[in-house]
Design a protein around this nucleic acid. Structure first.
Length: 261
DNA sequence: ATGGTTGGTAGCCAA
């Protein structure tokens, strides 16, 4: 099963680019973030025509996540548990059937950006990460293959940025942010890409500004985090970097993990 | 360390 995470930065503005990528990459499952539309605005017809089933958790103008899957699947929850007052659409979870009845539970998340630091936005980010930690721990107790995929808005280490010094005052690179990300690893989740490569210079986001992509001035902030049962099935991880150089690209590119079964 | 660019929405915000 090939599972992708892709911050699409506005699915309606990106439907042409997304369709082209789906046709060539043919992923089994896609976790989309920042669809930036209510459920009714999602271009479902175009995606269904490519053979995908769709579940959305949308919001007007901002945020919004969706799961696409070639196989029919069941949605387990919309919204991250732990705060009933949280109105932001940043999490959707589903169980996707695989071969031989080997299912994968997929949590698709769009973690808050949190800038600028020192504001309520940063506090919301950290609280959201604490809620993610609690939910991730509950999922581990199920003893299932779990993939928590998405835009984490975290630069875990200096090697995950071309210019780490440029991010020192950014919410994505704060010690509190990075510590909470490390805590997910300590729980027992494996960063799929790091399971197959120790290399620096592997990025998933390049800013639209100042010719960042042309200079490869990127950061790695999109991850597939695997429970032990999922990590045991990991075969390979690919970053579809060339997608960033096409017409009307998202500022993120897809990251794809292949699991056996 | 503050400029630059893009999407969504509606006269700027979020990233």
């Amino acid at each position: 099963m090939r599972i992708a995470t892709f911050n699409i930065n506005g699915v309606r503005a990106r439907i042409e680019a997304l369709s082209a990528w789906l046709k060539e990459a043919e992923p089994d499952v896609v976790c989309l973030q920042e669809i930036k539309t209510v459920d009714e605005g999602f271009p479902a017809g175009d995606i269904e025509a490519l053979g995908y089933n769709i579940a959305t958790h949308g919001q007007k103008g901002f945020n919004g996540v969706a799961i696409l899957s070639k196989r029919p699947f069941e949605v387990e929850r919309r919204g991250l548990p732990g705060d009933d007052a949280d109105q932001q659409a940043r999490y959707i979870e589903a169980v996707i059937p695989g071969e031989d009845g080997r299912a994968v539970r997929v949590g698709n998340l769009y973690l808050p950006n949190g800038n600028p630091i020192g504001t309520e936005k940063f506090a919301y980010k950290l609280a959201w990460m604490d809620r993610l930690h609690a939910h991730a721990a509950e999922l581990l107790a199920l003893d299932e293959a779990v993939v928590l995929a998405g835009d984490y808005n975290v630069i875990p280490e200096p090697r995950d940025a071309k210019r780490p010094e440029a991010w020192v005052y950014d919410a994505l690179f704060q010690p509190e942010t990075r510590g909470r990300f490390r805590a997910l690893s300590a729980l027992g989740y494996t960063d799929a890409l790091r399971a197959v490569s120790d290399d620096g210079g592997l990025y998933s986001f390049w800013d639209y500004q100042a010719g960042a992509f042309q200079k490869n001035d990127g950061i790695r902030i999109d991850f597939l985090m695997l429970s032990p049962q999922a990590a045991d099935r990991l075969e390979r991880v690919v970053i579809d970097k060339d997608v960033r150089g096409r017409d009307k690209p998202s500022d993120h590119v897809p990251v794809i993990a292949t699991l056996r079964g």
